[in-house]
Amino acid sequence: MSGHVTSKKIYFAVFGALMILTAITVGVATLDLGQLNTVVALAVAGCKATVVIWYFMEVRHARPLTKLTVVGGILWLVIMLILLFTDYISRDWMAGPQAW
């Protein structure tokens, strides 16, 4: 069988990293960085998610097709968000009374 058995050490190290990132995200939230607060929070959460996907979910040993599925799922979410925001960002660009 092709399953790759990862050593326990790596899993413990990943857990440690996730704990540290959790501490960072809470710590940063207490500082007032304006708009950057959200950016940092999402960046840290993104890092944590990546670590979980890459190590706990063993995508690093997965087939290319699995990797493609992961990327595809995230990409579709991004597509949805971007097209949604084309509306919400530009709704009040038109000056004066709204046409409808």
Partner: peptide, 25 residues
């Protein structure tokens, strides 16, 4: 395991977005 980790990831995003926003002020 994949399912469980996924549910964990959702929480990883929910925690800062719901609990931590506005903590600084």
């Amino acid at each position: 395991g994949l399912y469980w980790h996924f549910v964990d990831i959702v929480w990883i995003f929910l925690f800062p977005l719901l609990y931590l926003l506005g903590l600084h002020n």
